[in-house]
Computed example of a mutant assay.
Amino acid sequence: MNAESDGRQAGATTPAPSDTGGKTGTEPPVLGSRAPHFIKKSRALHLSWQVGVFVVGLAVVIVGIIMLPLPGPGWLVIFGGIGIWATEFVWAQLVLRWTKRKVSEATQRALDPRVRRRNIILTTIGLIIIGAALAVYIYKFGIVMPWKIDE
């Protein structure tokens, strides 16, 4: 069979999967476990590996949830825990892929000049309102240090 009969161009060549490591660059990464091969061979060892990965990922996600109201990078830690889960579980890989896509879309929207201008205007208006409210409070009550407050 020649190149013209199957729809390919005569001079075009496609790299063999071994040349690109099995990936052509446009394909999404393969979903599934990234456990070492010797662990995948034994069902009991693989199940133990999955339980361990789940427990470690759960601990990281719980720490991230605790960090949400406290000082610290809560969301970053939560996504790190999901990333740990994504090394073993397909559902976490899909959640992580969806999250990355949404963050990229939000970044592109935020870089739009009209949206940036609107956000700058709204932030400026908000700061003016907060400054005016603070000025009214200080004018009415003055500045009293906490250690000087009479009971």
Rank of each mutant, 00 (worst) to 15 (best):
D19V: 09
D19C: 00
T20P: 03
T20S: 14
G21K: 10
G21A: 11
G22M: 04
G22T: 03
G22K: 02
G22Q: 05
K23N: 15
K23Q: 14
T24R: 07
T24Q: 06
T24V: 01
G25S: 03
E27H: 04
E27G: 05
P28Y: 04
P28M: 06
P28V: 04
P28H: 11
P28G: 04
V30N: 05
L31S: 15
S33A: 05
R34H: 15
A35S: 06
A35D: 04
P36T: 00
P36F: 01
P36V: 00
H37Y: 12
F38W: 13
K40H: 01
K40E: 05
K40N: 00
K41H: 10
K41I: 11
S42C: 12
S42W: 08
S42N: 15
A44P: 03
L45S: 05
L45E: 03
H46F: 13
H46L: 07
L47D: 13
S48Y: 11
S48H: 12
W49P: 01
W49E: 03
Q50G: 07
V51D: 00
G52M: 14
V53S: 06
V53M: 13
V53H: 07
V53F: 07
F54A: 15
V55F: 11
V55Y: 04
V56M: 08
G57R: 05
G57I: 00
L58P: 03
A59V: 12
V61D: 09
I62R: 05
V63R: 12
V63H: 06
G64P: 05
G64I: 08
I65A: 12
I65G: 06
I66N: 13
M67H: 03
M67F: 10
M67Y: 08
L68W: 08
P69L: 09
P69Y: 11
L70E: 02
L70V: 05
L70N: 01
P71I: 13
P71M: 10
P71Y: 13
P71E: 14
P71T: 14
P71S: 12
G72N: 07
G72Y: 08
G72D: 06
G72E: 03
P73F: 15
P73W: 13
G74Q: 01
W75N: 14
W75R: 04
W75C: 03
W75G: 11
L76Y: 14
L76V: 15
L76F: 15
V77S: 02
I78A: 04
I78V: 15
F79C: 07
